[in-house]
Design a protein around this nucleic acid. Structure first.
Lengths: 110, 110
DNA sequence: TTTATTTATTGCAATATTACGATTATAATT
DNA sequence: AATTATAATCGTAATATTGCAATAAATAAA
């Protein structure tokens, strides 16, 4: 069907999944890395840095904005983007916990 | 076009993205959590635990296997899955570094 | 060997994603 | 007001993903 059955999962499972999904595209990884690197935020520079068309970058920015992973600030004709620290902290906490889950190797089968 | 332009990104960006994408579905998050929780690995129990049809779970397992996030061990008629520690360590390292990038708040625009 | 159990594969329908050209919206500049 | 610059939106094509019924494959048990 192509539609994810979100209703059968916990809120946390859906949250982790949708945040991971947002990061699950190299263009969005590149955008986030640029935002981290450049403290003057950048905007259309992303289009030049990354080799994708402007509407494509704009679409990826929209997805990151929808997940509140980034924020946009209008500055004249250009828009300045940056990481949303609040959501990013949530990501850190959520994934830290998820990634560092301990395996009980005792009864491991493989 | 629906096809990701992987060639214009770095190997690391593509790696982070495809690992995040693999985790970017609640069913796969649920599977991983089960594998962490139950050290006796489980197999078709996942079908009962998670409310999806057997072929659907099998497909999600395949994706996780393709990314080498999990390993499968045939035990009679059933298959015993578990986390692939090697890849999981890579994920920890890769994402730890990615998530904890410091923002230089000095020239921040928003 | 037949039967039951378990998992993988196939085939398909519905929906989502990716990418971009064309266009529009907004604001600064002339 | 007209022009320029920047970014968002629309429309569309190509491809990917999600989910499941039906079926196949593999092994264990009878």
């Amino acid at each position: 069907m192509g539609i994810t059955k979100k209703e059968i999962f916990t809120e946390q499972q859906n949250r982790i999944a949708s945040l991971a999904k947002a990061i699950g595209h190299p263009a969005r990884v590149a955008i986030l890395q640029q935002l981290f690197k450049s403290n003057t935020c950048i905007c259309g520079d992303l289009v030049n840095e990354i080799g994708l068309a402007q509407p494509t970058i704009s679409q990826h920015l929209k997805e990151l904005k929808n997940m509140k992973i980034i924020k946009g600030n209008i500055e004249g004709t250009s828009v300045c983007y940056c990481i949303d620290q609040e959501t990013w902290s949530e990501i850190e906490t959520l994934f830290q916990a998820f990634f560092t889950q301990k395996v009980n190797r005792a009864g491991d089968c493989c």
